[in-house]
Nucleic acid binder design. Structure first.
Lengths: 206, 206
DNA sequence: TAGATTGTTAATCGATTAACAATC
DNA sequence: TAGATTGTTAATCGATTAACAATC
């Protein structure tokens, strides 16, 4: 609907959907922006403003259909399609993410695994063989949509160098290096950043 | 220095420190806000503005001392002290975080582990025994500063119910439930939210 | 119909950027 | 000293909130 939508709005969509799914699971069928706002601790105005970037999903005098809105948000984010996912780095974090996806995200398909450690190469995780860098670079050309990176900087950078020209459209990056690759959206997670922000708040209470 | 500092500023501090540490490791001794801004892809103005909330760390005509500024940021965030850390949920994600901390963060001390699964209770991780809920609630009273939560909602909520009255000052929360506990700062990570935002961007390129 | 609540415009607020005097 | 770059104030920009007419 709108042509430009700010990152702040996009980042709130998953949270809206998360709450709506929970409400739906609790059997709630309709909700007003006011109610949802008080549950989520945001203003009703912001919810309506955010949603109306994408269309009018509510009904005056009624509110929003919980299940319907949840589904609309999934369509908007593209959670109603399938993604081929490759994972670079199959240590504990990589495996934690793989098992999280397997248990919680119906929209993905594990399409390739990479880890350069000798004792990892050749093993299977969730039915997919772990490949070394060289071999994985070939797999990467065969229709992977999203690359999840948890490997150490050196390996991550080497793999990233071969991304251009593949069909990879997004990187979910847990590593230290921040990538910039043309035509590829990168989301940097940097777990420790949020821990450090927490430390700040602990030392500066108010 | 300033009394109120916005969350946006706080969230940028770890990233500044991360880049400064890297530069310091590369042997860079001084840097101007202009140079740092171009490396980090932010404006020089923002860097100076952000830092001056906490004090004047630079020198006109010279710039900032890389090592010095890095250390100042660590002091501001409180990374120069020690935190007793408890981990609720010792599955793959919990273990990934524990080993990340052990290898990267000198400022923490593992002070308690909780997991309610029979095959986990009693085992040791990094020299600390895993306790069940009931036992961990006692440990929680003995000076834990930060609680890291990766456990399923039910267990997380039960443990969280007993936080008030302990010395816990912060929660680094990877679970689905968003906690609000008086006097405790909670940082909700919600990994999947950032993956879902990535999905959005993949489906709406520009 | 009357009441409720949306979609949307207008007002406010806060954060970012620009500018420049201070000063190393 | 002259040049560079900070610290800080002022201007701009964008995001959030408030208000209200539209409408279910």
């Amino acid at each position: 609907m709108d042509s430009y939508i700010s990152d702040a709005v996009i980042r709130r969509l998953p949270r809206y959907r998360r709450y709506l799914k929970k409400l739906s699971g609790q059997g709630v069928q309709r909700i007003s922006s006011k109610e949802l706002g008080s549950i989520m601790d945001v203003t009703a105005s912001q919810i309506r403003q955010d949603l109306n970037h994408f269309g009018g999903f509510g009904q005056q005098g009624y509110g929003y259909g919980v299940e319907d809105l949840s589904q609309k948000l999934e369509e908007i984010m593209g959670l109603d399609r399938t993604y081929n996912i490759g994972v670079v780095g199959c240590g504990r974090l990589g495996q934690a993410i793989i098992s999280y996806l397997a248990n919680n995200e119906p929209f993905y398909k594990l399409a390739g695994l990479c880890d350069n450690r000798a004792d990892m190469v050749g093993t299977e995780i969730n039915g997919v063989k772990v490949e070394d860098k060289a071999s994985f670079k070939e797999t990467m050309k065969k229709g992977i949509d999203i690359l999840i990176i948890t490997a150490p900087a050196r390996i991550a950078e080497e793999v990233a160098a071969d991304i251009e020209g593949t069909e990879i459209k997004g990187i979910w990056n847990f590593g230290m290096t921040e990538f910039h690759i043309k035509g590829v959206k990168v989301i940097n997670v940097h777990l420790s950043d949020s821990l450090h922000a927490l430390c700040y708040y602990i030392n500066h209470p108010d």
